[in-house]
Amino acid sequence: MQSESARMTTAHEAGFRVQAPNSRPRAAKVIALDATAAALLEPISRATWHGAAFFTSMNFTALTTSGQPLDAWLKDVAGHTMNLMSEVAAADFVVVVAGAGEDARAVSVIADACRMHSKTLVGLIVPRADDSDEAITASLKELRPYAKMLVVANGADYIEAMLTALRA
């Protein structure tokens, strides 16, 4: 008699798989850590996303001098100011995007917020074609202590590919 595994792994049987959705869209908060990353995110943010929202972190320096991450603010692509903690609390995961060799210090504040809300932080470094290995290394060093997953993208289109793959 044919085994159950043999019967159940045919292409024919694949046609009987339950077709109901098995997940809901993810709420991804995608934060540019620097101006280079913000420029990369701007066109991507204009696409239709299920649950991705795009921000810049440019106000961090001024707002975190107290050392209280709760006071940190983000700016969304429409220019609205948003509270970092509220945004992270509402996220399924957080992605920080950095240009190679750029100032990525804001990641520490975002990481604090992620830690407080037990959210996964993904770090994405997007080098330009002429960026040096040293610049990439510097960014890796800056993001490594904070990111659960750290990726050097092979082009800006990877941001979109990753968010789509993660159902954001």
């Binding site: 595994s5 159940m8 792994t9 045919t10 292409a11 049987e13 694949a14 798989r17 098995n22 997940s23 995961f93 996964t120 993904v122 659960k148 997953m149 990726v151 993208a153 092979n154 289109d157 990877y158 590919a161 990753m162 793959a165 993660l166 159902r167």
Partner: peptide, 27 residues
Amino acid sequence: ESMGPLCDRTKENLVSTDNGIIMARQR
């Protein structure tokens, strides 16, 4: 093999630690 002869990836739910797979597909 239990995924079926050709895995239906329209139904999968990847997580951030799957970035190696995501990038391999993209490449």
